[in-house]
Design a protein around this nucleic acid. Structure first.
Length: 584
RNA sequence: CGGGGCGUAGCGCAGCCUGGUAGCGCAUCGGUUUUGGGAACCGAGGGUCGGAGGUUCAAAUCCUCUCGCCCCGACCA
C-alpha cells in the first residue's frame, strides 16, 4: 500500500478527548475517529489491526473445534422475555420499536439467540457437543462510555457458546476455550493473566477473566507469587483467622461507653481513642428489598458488595442505606452504628471478626462509641461469611503465599453457564434412554477492539505505538527519505515491489514530505520493521533496517534487501512460535 | 442518575470576568527556497462563536432553556 493513497490522518497534538495512552495514540495515529460518545469509525489502518486480531481468534477457535456463525444484531424481545433478561438487563439494553410497534433490542450478547437456534435444530445427544461462535458488533448503552475503544457503546466482540450433554463435556469445552484464549492473547503479544472472576448477571457458576496487565485497567487483580492463584479483586477469597490465630482464653474486658464527639470515620475514631483500625469494627447498614441489614467488617477492611449480594441470593439489589434508614434501623446517626443492642435486623459479619476481642464499635447514639466489645457476650452474629475486599496484608487463600496486586484490562471472559438459559428457554435433547435433558452451556467472549487498545497500552513509547508483529497493520514500512532523488525513490519502489512479491504486507511512504515528518509518522503508527532508504547509504549501495522496538540499525545491500527482510520477519515469527509452545 | 467542566476555523486553544471590527499556533491551498527526526519565507481560503429564546442601541461575552461532549462517582460479561 502506498502511504500517499491511504487515509492515515495522523495528529501532531494530543486530542483533548483522550485520557489514556491507547485512546490518544489510536486517534493520533489515525486508527479511529469518534462519531458519537462510545461510537467509533475505524479508519483503514485501525481496521487492518482489527482484522488481524479477528483472524487470530478465528484460527484458534477453529483449532478448538468451534464453528463460526453470524447472528443478527436485531433481536426480538420475545426471546429476552423468555430468559427474563428483558427486565433484568436494565437500561444498558438498547431497545427499539419497529413500525408495527414490536419491541426489539440490539444484541449486547447472544445467549438468547443462540439458545433459540440450538433448541430448534438440536434434538439428540448424537448432535452434541456443539460449539458456535461469531464475531460481530455488540451494543450496550453504557452509562458512561470512556477511554475510546475500552468501553464503547458499540463494539466488536467474539462471542462463543458451547452446548454439552453432561457436566464432564461442559468442563471439557470450558478447558478447550480457556486454552484457546491463552493462545490467542499470547499470539497477540500481550502480557496477561487468567483470573477467577465473579460471573455477574450473566449467571452461571464459574468464570475466568483474561486480564491484560496495565496501569490504566479498570479492574484490580490479585495474584499469588508462589502458586498460580489469580483473581479479580471483586472475587478474591479472604480466609478467616486460622485456629492458631484465634484469641485465647477469658481475656475479655468489661464493656465501656466513651464520648467520641464528632468522630465518625474509622480514622478519626482511632486517632481520638489512640487505637488502630484493626481494633475497630465498622457497622454498615445496607438495604435489600426495602429491609435493612447490618454488615460488620474490621476497621481496616472494606465491604465487598458483590460478595454480599451473592451471599444474599444474588438477584435483588443491595445498596448502602441512607441516613434516615440508618437512624430508623439503629436509633443513632450514621458514623456511630454498632451491633450491640441492634434489634429487628439481621447481623452479618466478616470472617475476620472471629479473631477479634475487646474491639471498638459505635454505640448507636450520637458522639458515643463502645470499648471492649466482644462477640457472643455483647451481641450475636446471625451469620459469618467472607464479605470484604482482599488487602495487601492478606495471604493467598490457596497456599498462604504473598499476593501481588495489579491493574488489568478485561479482554476476555469465559463462563460456565450450566443450565441457566437452557432451562428458562427449554433447550433440551433426548439422551440414550430417550429422556429429555437440559443442555449444559458455556459462553466465551473476547473484546476485539479492547484487545487492540490493550495491545497499545502495553506496547508503546513516547513516540507512538509499537505493534507486536502478529497484529500490526503492516509488517514493513519503507521510508524513502528524499523522494525528489530518483535513486532513492526508485530504490524504495523496487523494494516495495520485491517485498510484495514475497507476500509481505508493506507500506511505502511515497509522500513528498520532509524526513522529519516521515520519521515521526512512522514511529507514531508503529509498524514493526522500518526500511529506510536515503542518499547517504544508497551511495554505498546500502539500505537500513530497524525494528520499531529497538535502536539497532541493520544495513544490507540493496539487491538482498527483500530476502533479508523476509528472514528477519521469519526469525521474529519463529521466536514467537517457540515462546507460544513453551507457554502452553 | 449525582458532582465538576467544556462547546469559538479541520486540530489545539485565547478572547467571556469588565458587551462595541472574531484572534493565535498547527493543518489546508498557491508560490519560492529547502530535505536523515514534525523546515523557512511570501500569499490565499476557511467561522451562522453548539442551538433556541431573552436583556440591550449593540451579545462569542450578560440571563433563561436546550443539545452535545469530557472528567469524578454510582453502574457494568
Amino acid at each position: 500500500m502506498r502511504y500517499s493513497r491511504m487515509l492515515i490522518p495522523t495528529l501532531r497534538e494530543d486530542p483533548g478527548e483522550a485520557e489514556i495512552v491507547s485512546h490518544c495514540l489510536m486517534l493520533r495515529s489515525g486508527l479511529i475517529r469518534k462519531l458519537a460518545a462510545g461510537v467509533y469509525n475505524f479508519l483503514p489502518l485501525g481496521w487492518r489491526v482489527m482484522k488481524k486480531i479477528e483472524q487470530i481468534v478465528r484460527e484458534e477457535m477453529e483449532l478448538a473445534g468451534a464453528q463460526e456463525v453470524f447472528l443478527p444484531v436485531l433481536c426480538p424481545s420475545e426471546l429476552w422475555h423468555e430468559s427474563a433478561r428483558w427486565d433484568a438487563y436494565g437500561k444498558e439494553l438498547m431497545r427499539i420499536t419497529d413500525r408495527h410497534g414490536r419491541d426489539f433490542c440490539l444484541g449486547p450478547t447472544h445467549e438468547e439467540v443462540i439458545t433459540d437456534l440450538v433448541r430448534r435444530e438440536v434434538r439428540s445427544y448424537r448432535q452434541l457437543p456443539i460449539n458456535l461462535y461469531q464475531i460481530q458488533t455488540k451494543f450496550r448503552d453504557e452509562i458512561r462510555p470512556r477511554f475510546g475503544l475500552m468501553r464503547g457503546r458499540e463494539f466488536m466482540m467474539k462471542d462463543g457458546y458451547s452446548f454439552d450433554r453432561h457436566e464432564a463435556g461442559a468442563q471439557r469445552a470450558y478447558s478447550m476455550m480457556y486454552k484457546a484464549y491463552n493462545r490467542i492473547f499470547a499470539r497477540c503479544g500481550l502480557d496477561f493473566r487468567a483470573v477467577e472472576a465473579d460471573s455477574g448477571p450473566i449467571g452461571g457458576s464459574f468464570s475466568h477473566e483474561f486480564m491484560v496487565l496495565a496501569e490504566s485497567g479498570e479492574d484490580s487483580i490479585a495474584s499469588c507469587t508462589e502458586c498460580d492463584y489469580a483473581s479479580n479483586l471483586e472475587k478474591a477469597e479472604c480466609v478467616g483467622p486460622r485456629m492458631n490465630e484465634l484469641p485465647e482464653g477469658p481475656c475479655m474486658k468489661d464493656m465501656a461507653e466513651v464520648e467520641t464527639p464528632g468522630r465518625k470515620s474509622v480514622e478519626d475514631v482511632c486517632e481520638f481513642l489512640g487505637c488502630r483500625p484493626e481494633q475497630l469494627v465498622k457497622t454498615m447498614i445496607f438495604i435489600q428489598e426495602g429491609k435493612p441489614l447490618a454488615v460488620l467488617v474490621r476497621g481496616d477492611h472494606e465491604v465487598n458488595e458483590i460478595k454480599l449480594k451473592n451471599l444474599l441470593g444474588g438477584v435483588s439489589e443491595v445498596i448502602l442505606a441512607d441516613e434516615s434508614t440508618i437512624e430508623y434501623a439503629t436509633g443513632g446517626p450514621s458514623g456511630f452504628s454498632g451491633p450491640v443492642g441492634l434489634k429487628g435486623l439481621p447481623i452479618l459479619a466478616d470472617l475476620s471478626l472471629k479473631g477479634m476481642v475487646n474491639f471498638v464499635v459505635g454505640a448507636n447514639e450520637a458522639d458515643k462509641h463502645l470499648l471492649n466489645v466482644n462477640l457472643d457476650r455483647d451481641f450475636k452474629v446471625d451469620r459469618y461469611a467472607d464479605l470484604r475486599y482482599i488487602t495487601d496484608k492478606d495471604k493467598c487463600p490457596r497456599c498462604s503465599g504473598i499476593l501481588n496486586f495489579h491493574r488489568g484490562i478485561e479482554v476476555g471472559h469465559v463462563f460456565k453457564l450450566g443450565t441457566k438459559y437452557s432451562k428458562s428457554m427449554k433447550a433440551v435433547f433426548l439422551d440414550e434412554d430417550g429422556r429429555e435433558q437440559y443442555m449444559i452451556m458455556g459462553c466465551y467472549g473476547i473484546g476485539i477492539g479492547r484487545t487492540m487498545a490493550a495491545a497499545i497500552e502495553q506496547n508503546h513509547d513516547e513516540d507512538g505505538i509499537i505493534w507486536p508483529l502478529p497484529i500490526a497493520p503492516f509488517q514493513v514500512h519503507i521510508l524513502p527519505v528524499n523522494m525528489d532523488n530518483e535513486d532513492v525513490s526508485g530504490a524504495g519502489e523496487e523494494i516495495y515491489q520485491d517485498l510484495q512479491k514475497e507476500g509481505i504486507e508493506v507500506l511505502l511512504d511515497d509522500r513528498d514530505e520532509s524526513p522529519g515528518i516521515k520519521f515521526k509518522d512512522a514511529d507514531l503508527i508503529g509498524i514493526p520493521l522500518r526500511v529506510t532508504v536515503g542518499i547517504k547509504s544508497l551511495r554505498e549501495g546500502m539500505v537500513e533496517m530497524k525494528w520499531r522496538d529497538s535502536k539497532d540499525v541493520v544495513r544490507e545491500g540493496l539487491p538482498h534487501i527483500a530476502a533479508k527482510v523476509r528472514n528477519m520477519i521469519e526469525d521474529k515469527k519463529r521466536t514467537a512460535d517457540s515462546k507460544l509452545e513453551s507457554i502452553l
